[in-house]
């Protein structure tokens, strides 16, 4: 009763394609479910008003602002640090002990779960540095969380720039710094931006770390030291407290649409980048 190789081939191809199809179906189902239940409730006033009665009525404007502030600040902090690290690793040193240690640090950081970042942010930023539950504490925590992603994508982007570009630039008498900023970074920018855009996406969908660092105030954050509630946490609260499933799914739709857009932008940038370097 041995199955012939040709039949095994057929069976496996069908099985594997079934797995892939189920995966894509799962994605479509999740997107469809969220948008079907949420989009009808997304109106202009939902996007621009403040919530009333815990979010049962009104809109999600303060959460949109809060999410933008947290994600924006986080990337603003992690972006330069991550890109600088990548520049150092690729242009300013040779592979050796130091680069190995730096990479080890980044790799380990990448594997740490967000709840641990939350615990750390809570004792360090919120309590030890006295920031309280605030946009700033949340942004700093997320900055550390996305740093490895930015380092890795920037490094890959810089490495993909042909060596000849910088050789020519250096040969023409430019300093290394001039070469890096005017030649290398310019060519690598779509790749770097892709990493940053994906990091923004990660910040937007994060909940556990922000619950412990940014707080859950419903009001509009007026400064970086105010507490804020991000969209993801607002969705969680509306859903869990059973305040308003309709508004919860509407919030989730906004979140999903933003994440879709972010992924599209990243994908488009990546394709341009690949097209150019090849």
């Amino acid at each position: 009763m041995r199955i012939s190789p040709a039949n095994t081939q057929r069976i496996m191809v069908v099985a594997l394609w079934t797995l892939a199809a189920m995966t894509v179906f799962t994605l479509l189902f999740i997107l469809g479910y969220v948008l079907y239940h949420g989009l009808p409730h997304v109106t202009w006033s939902f996007l621009t008003e403040s919530p009333r009665r815990m979010g049962k009525e009104g809109g999600i404007f303060p959460m949109i602002v809060g999410t933008a502030m947290v994600a924006g600040l986080a990337v603003l902090i992690a972006g330069p640090i991550g890109v600088a690290t990548a520049i150092y690793l690729t242009e300013y040193t040779r592979e050796g002990k130091i680069t190995a240690i730096i990479r080890f640090g980044a790799d380990c950081l990448a594997g740490i779960p967000s709840i641990i970042f939350g615990l750390f942010g809570f004792v360090f930023f919120v309590i030890t540095l006295g920031m309280g539950l605030s946009v700033m504490a949340g942004a700093l925590t997320l900055a550390i969380m996305v740093l490895p992603t930015i380092i890795r994508t920037s490094e890959e982007a810089i490495r993909a720039v042909p060596r000849s570009f910088s050789d020519v630039s250096m040969g023409l008498g430019a300093t290394r710094w001039q070469t890096v900023t005017r030649v290398v970074l310019r060519s690598a920018s779509p790749g770097i931006v892709t990493g940053i855009v994906l990091s923004i996406g990660r910040c937007i969908s994060e909940t556990a770390a922000l619950m412990l660092t940014a707080g859950s105030a419903l009001r509009m954050p007026h400064s970086a030291l105010d507490s804020c509630r991000t969209l993801a946490l607002h969705f969680y609260t509306l859903m869990r407290e059973g305040i308003s499933p309709a508004h919860a799914w509407a919030t989730a739709s906004v979140l999903i649409v933003v994440i879709l857009l972010i992924n599209l932008v990243a994908y488009w940038l990546m394709r341009r980048f690949v097209a150019r370097t090849v």
């Binding site: 640090i81 600088a84 690290t85 520049i87 150092y88 690793l89 300013y92 040193t93 130091i98 240690i101 730096i102 080890f104 640090g105 980044a106 380990c108 950081l109 740490i112 641990i116 970042f117 615990l119 750390f120 004792v123 360090f124 030890t128 550390i144 740093l147 490895p148 380092i151 300093t175 290394r176 710094w177």
Partner: peptide, 26 residues
């Protein structure tokens, strides 16, 4: 260039020092 190199090296250690800080505090 050397100065810039040192500065970048210092920045590059931020991931590692964050890791150390997190470990210490937890």
């Amino acid at each position: 260039d050397r100065v810039i190199g040192w500065v970048l090296l210092a920045v590059a250690f931020s991931a590692l020092s964050s890791l150390a800080l997190i470990t210490t505090f937890i």
